[in-house]
Design a protein around this nucleic acid. Structure first.
Lengths: 196, 196
DNA sequence: TAGCTTGTTGAGCGTTGCTCAGCAAGCCGG
DNA sequence: CCGGCTTGCTGAGCAACGCTCAACAAGCTA
């Protein structure tokens, strides 16, 4: 009796691009439940139905892998936040703020994972996070029609931290209405740039 | 010829308390250069001149160890920030703010490590961080003579995030004078609680 | 000195990041 | 149909690390 194991499905051979995309996608799916750096190669490979070795064919080190995942997450968020072309300058900031709150409300877990992973000590991940913030501050300063000097950058970045923290805890425990939250954030930002 | 290795110094036997303290101290020394969670048992044990096994005698798991280290770091900072008894309420906030900036200036690396480690995905470490923030917000609200409702807590916590971020980048690149920085931070805080 | 407590160790196991030699799927020219 | 080439892919295995366990030994007390 050839009571053999379930017939291994014929080995599937993908193009390099497909495989890479699949692996990054799996990483993104795992992000909400696992801090990026704690993704295990075993788990990812298992989900992809490939051997550990293959993952190292596409990403030389584990770090290179989860950096790619982080970058993908950042790109998703940026794509969602950036104002569509043709928006008036005034509406740009309001729109981004509104979409940001929406983003946090919708992808609470994933977003927390992204922000957390950012702080998580790994310089590579932190760099991706910084890049994202830099791109956002750039857009914000342009939309506000403010010159972009070091000082203003610092203030806007700190305001991002303020916003991130407040929106995060607000999503957990809504102590005010959504419009009020938006107005408050906007107001703090406006007051900040008034000073010199 | 007994060309033996250097005569092992007679084994030193410490009290449990001493050993624990030594291990935590070593962790604190390593903090500035290594994210807490990436401390390796090997390294710590080597520095302490003991075997890996002994560390597990005092801390059941690695996580328990680095949580203890994190808590020690938090306690050091709190001890430095909390206003000495006999300070007037008004001076308390100003004093804490001033000492916080000084703390960041002096222990830049360590403090960054603490803040980073906090975000780093590990729930236990995050909890220690949250506890610290909660204690600080408590002191702040009392000093400001403000009722401590959920909403105000959120706002003050978000202001902490603002402060942390701004002081951090300011220490890297001082775009204003120290007094101006302090005034700005204080001003933002004051304006926040005015609303409602 | 015997005996107890407890600080301490070494050997070893399972997991995980990573390497390397080589297999095999799919396409080509003949 | 065949040989050969490219390249996606695998399995065995190593080193590092977290963690366990049985046993040793330092120092106290009776």
């Amino acid at each position: 009796m050839a009571a053999s194991s379930p017939p291994d499905p014929p080995r599937l051979r993908r193009t390099a691009g497909d495989r890479r995309a699949q692996l990054v996608r799996i990483g993104l799916e795992l992000l909400p439940t696992t801090p990026v750096q704690e993704l295990t190669i075993d788990e990812v490979a298992r989900r992809a139905g490939i051997s550990r070795s293959l993952l190292f064919h596409y990403f030389a080190t584990k770090r290179e892998y989860y950096t790619a995942v982080t970058r993908a997450a950042a790109d998703l968020m940026l794509e969602h936040l950036l104002p569509p072309p043709g928006t008036s300058r005034e509406e740009q900031v309001a729109g981004m703020l509104d979409r940001y709150v929406g983003w946090v409300e919708t992808f609470r877990e994933s977003h927390l994972a992204f922000v957390r992973g950012a702080g998580g000590g790994d310089p590579w991940v932190a760099e991706v996070y910084e890049e994202t913030r830099e791109r956002l501050v750039q857009v914000a300063l342009t939309a506000l029609e403010l010159p972009d000097d070091a000082r203003r950058r610092q203030l806007v970045l700190a305001w991002f931290a303020f916003t991130e923290d407040l929106v995060g805890s607000w999503a957990d425990q809504p102590t005010m209405g959504r419009p009020e939250l938006l107005a408050l954030l906007r107001d703090v930002l406006d007051r900040l740039d008034v000073r010199t």
